Amino acid sequence: MSNAGNCIAIGLLLAGGAVIASAEQTIRFEGTAESLETGATVYTEHHVQTGECRDGFWEPSNHEVTYRSPEGDIIADKTIDYGDAPARPSFTLEDKRFGERMQVSNPEDEHVRIQYRSSSGEETSYRVQAPDNGVIDAGFEVMVRQNWQTLVADGKTVQIGFLAPTRGKFYAFKAEPAEKEALEGKHVFRISVAGWVSSWFVDPIHLAFNEQRQLTDFHGLTNILRTPEDNFRAHIHYDHDSAPGCH
């Protein structure tokens, strides 16, 4: 079984309070993934995201990603629906080369439904209850923005539960401020195991954000297949044309 879908995604919901929202916007940005082994570009990401500013930070509602080979061919695509719990979105990721498909549905933010088809054609499904501090896929961006004060100003650790879709289980992880010279963003965070976990994931993931709270770097295991059995380990550099203008 491959590690697809095991790419780190983290998040934590804010406590209650007044919500100040603005009109919906659409933003676009791109990412270039460079292999941690060779340094060569292995694929590019092309993002289209809709959302709005809430309480001074960007909160996405829908997200489409197209993954292309260095030659420009589409190798995978992904759709994300952030729903009522942006840290635990529903998503579908389909690999065009090896036939792998992951679908995670979280409509009521209670029981997460997972349908997975591996590159070998084997199909599995799970139904798991989402914990209050649970995180699914790209919810890590939402988590960082919502916990900016804790992570950046206070320099503290945030405990989260990360969904490993191919295993149908949330695992204990932690997000904390860190340093990593290779990353370009001003604010760097390390996502690592908070306790014992099986060998499917050992190395931490590093993320970096700029002052506008936009993701500038991802460093570690990705959710894109390198072979039918293994995923790329890469440094992804993100290029944003503009910020959504949240204040």
Rank of each mutant, 00 (worst) to 15 (best):
M1D: 13
M1S: 11
S2D: 15
S2C: 07
S2L: 09
I8N: 00
I8H: 06
G11S: 02
L12C: 01
G17F: 10
G17C: 10
A18G: 06
A21H: 03
T26C: 04
I27V: 15
E30M: 11
T32W: 02
A33M: 12
L36C: 03
T41G: 00
V42E: 13
H47N: 15
R54P: 03
F57K: 07
F57T: 15
W58H: 10
P60K: 02
N62K: 04
N62Q: 03
S69C: 09
G72M: 13
D73I: 00
K78G: 00
I80K: 09
D81P: 00
D84H: 12
A85R: 15
A87W: 03
P89W: 14
S90I: 08
F91V: 06
E108D: 15
E108W: 03
H111I: 13
T124M: 12
S125G: 10
R127T: 08
R127K: 09
P131I: 01
N133S: 09
F140A: 12
E141A: 09
V144M: 04
R145Y: 07
Q146V: 05
Q149L: 02
L151A: 11
L151V: 12
V152T: 14
T157C: 03
G161A: 14
F162S: 03
F162E: 11
L163T: 07
A164P: 00
A164M: 08
P165Q: 02
K169N: 08
F170K: 08
F170R: 08
F173C: 04
A175L: 13
E176H: 05
E176L: 09
K186W: 00
H187I: 01
V188W: 04
F189P: 07
R190D: 07
R190C: 09
S198P: 01
S198T: 06
S199W: 03
W200V: 06
F218P: 11
L221A: 12
N223I: 01
R226F: 01
E229H: 12
F232I: 07
A234D: 13
A234N: 13
D239K: 15
D241N: 14
A243W: 04
G245R: 08
C246T: 07
